[in-house]
Amino acid sequence: MVRNVTWRTWLMHAVLIFGTVILAFPIYTALVASTHTVRAVITEMPLWFGSQAWENYITVLSGGASEVGIPPVGIMMFNSVVMALGITVGKLSVSLLAAYAVVFFRFPLRRVFFWMIFITLMLPVEVRIMPTFEVVSDLGMLNSYSGLILPLIASATATFLFRQFYLTIPDELFEAARIDGAGPLRFFWDHILPLSRTNMAAMFVILFIYGWNQYLWPLLVTSDESMYTVVMGLQRSTAMPDAIPHWNLIMSTALLGLLPPVLVVVFMQRLFVKGLVETEK
């Protein structure tokens, strides 16, 4: 028995290590590439770290990579952060309030409204991209943060999640607050928001990464380099006409662009897990 168990433990670990290596390999490659000169990377892809790390990162961070088609990374990061935070905060606010309306208020066609929200699950930006672009462009929001953010802030997923959570809040809580003299807005602020804290944290992580990874939409609505986000800016820089892509610098930029979502996950992990598994309030 004992031998059997150790054998199985070994096998399990082997499988896990193998999976981890496969997942980590691209990141390793990017790390390695970001430490070499462009010549080394293009001629034969090295498998071990080079000595150009400092130079490469300084170049991208100081905006010196513009000549080779990579927009200044600081501006792109800033744009990405603004967009991701805007989308996250927008989605959270809209869906918290929408779910509140659907669960706690009796108004005509309540169910119809809920299902209308629900159906938008089937209409992500990619599907409605032409009309949405038309609207944003008519409103003169091309090349602006509002143009990047607004079309993305309705979220059926988050509304649904909060609705499910609100449904678990006993009616008596609302009634007790009514007797205590709290109106609907006060109840929302004093009770619903604090009770939704962990759910909000979980949604924050998911939505921030969703916002950060937006690619198609920023590609369409931004033509001005000063509005580029990291994810799309990178793509632009790999497709420079009549030039070799500077993979070493591109990879440095990509790794820098990975940092914010990683930090969000690392710092919110505990709340995130709690928000997903916790049912008791």
Binding site: E172, L173, E175, A176, H191, R197, K281
Partner: peptide, 10 residues
Amino acid sequence: VFQNYALYPH
């Protein structure tokens, strides 16, 4: 006073 008390949990 409610049967399940309806205290504010937070």
